[in-house]
Amino acid sequence: MLSAWFPTSVSTYGGQIDYVINLIFYVTAFWFVLVTAVLLFFVIRYRRRAGVPAAFVQGETGREVAWILVPAFLVLVCDLGIDAAGGRAWEAVKGPPPPAALTVQVMGSQFVWKFTYPGPDGRFGAGNDLKEDSLHVPLGQVVRLELQSEDVIHDFFVPDMRLKQDVIPGRTITAWFQATKPGTYEIACSQLCGPAHFDMRGELVVQTESEYQAWLKQERAAASAKTAASALPDRAQKG
């Protein structure tokens, strides 16, 4: 019933998160319907009628208090079930990430996302990093994100991936995901970050391995052509 409202999950752990949300939905819906039904029943059944006095019940004896303590104990059992399911999924999603095939640095600032890919040797800061405006990742690979902010707190949210993580200036926060379906997905900022917070949209493109490699090659070529081109007029001016 709920899943109709959710964007289809396209990450390996999305299903685990959806499972917990659904579990909580069914448990709480059960209690809500039950309690509301009892409330309604009492309100109708015990409405004031001439000649029918109220009973003097204080609920102080053990037997009487059991009427509320036993249901409360059943609530506790449900709570512990939810805790267990939630704890397991949390460990899988936010616990130590699996080894990553690709690491991308994500920089949030008012009001854009920027992405930095390592050079061909897989290392950052060697002068051949690739700067991008959208995030391209290969299908089925574990992608590690190093999230940073230049100014205020942002939040890196990809609804379809069930990935949401605050990004705090002064720290590097890692997050990860593994996409299960190719496509273009939206990245939203989900933490109020200033007047144009609503406009801080990014794009995530999941491609098959070969498409991704082709894109990477093309971008690297374009980047080096661009550096060459920007270097030229410089020299011309000086000359």
Binding site: I24, T28, D83, G86, K94, D155, L163, K164
Partner: peptide, 17 residues
């Protein structure tokens, strides 16, 4: 009852904010 969703650390990943 909707507080239970947000009290669950895992459900909160998606529902937070």
């Amino acid at each position: 009852v909707t507080g239970i969703f947000l009290g669950s650390q895992t459900a909160d990943i998606y529902l937070h904010d």
